[in-house]
Design a binder for these strands. Structure first.
Lengths: 126, 126
DNA sequence: CTTGACCTTGACAGTGGTGTGAAGGCTGCA
DNA sequence: TGCAGCCTTCACACCACTGTCAAGGTCAAG
């Protein structure tokens, strides 16, 4: 598919898709036109990228992590790189922190919202 | 305490503490010097701000959310603002999304790391 | 052939978060 | 008194992300 279709399928503006490519996160091949041609599997990949970005992970890290997130278990053996491992462990740690942090705050929000609702039961405005 | 001490306690550079103040997230009082004087409870607050920022929530939103995260259940009744409620529900939704997303990816990372470790058992380098 | 919808690259602008440095004020201590 | 170390404001500049516009190429349909 071409960039417009991918943009529409993922909800990510074409501008951003080009940006992700520039940052080395996706690599569509080109038609004779020069048009970008995206494989189907990139839809998932783009969604993953968005999710990671929204979670506060910068593109640079995403680029290093992405190959590890597909993970067909076979891709691993090629590079027993200790630096990579360290980085992954660190990132996983950060993720875990963020998860528990978000959980806490989500629960706090829930409590607050419920308290609001108790204060103004149903839609009984003025 | 003054800005240097707070910076050191929270790990957040003094520059950032001034920035958060500029954004209305914290409001230290001033000494006759002009020096900022921070109450103890701001240590927690700053940590909370950092966590939210790291999780991809912008300062503007944080400013609106913060009062709702302390939540002594009594603070609520004052403002039965439906817009605020809507915003909170939306943010909670985003948080929930991010949580499950992060969980997924954390697990994927874990699998990958374990696979690496199986490929290079212990530290049996060359 | 023309029109319209899509694509291309390139650039400039803006926002949010952060680093850093200049120029100067306050305070405590030798 | 003078220096060291903290503080102040102001400003410039960077990175990451995003929007938008310009100038132009491609292609299918009328």
């Amino acid at each position: 598919m071409r960039i417009g279709e991918l943009a529409q399928k993922t909800g990510v503006p074409a501008r951003m898709l080009r940006y992700y490519e520039e940052q080395g996160l996706i690599a569509p091949r080109r038609l004779q036109n020069g048009y970008r041609e995206y494989e189907d599997y990139l839809v998932h990949r783009v969604r993953k990228i968005r999710g990671l970005l929204d979670s506060g992970i910068p593109t640079r890290i995403i680029g290093d992590m992405l190959p590890c997130l597909n993970n067909t278990e076979a891709t691993v053996v090629a590079d027993p790189d200790p630096e990579l491992r360290e980085m992954l462990v660190e990132q996983r740690g950060k993720m875990t922190e963020r998860i528990s942090f978000l959980e806490q705050n989500r629960d706090a929000l829930t409590r607050y919202i419920e308290a609001m609702d108790r204060a103004v039961p149903a839609s009984a405005a003025s």
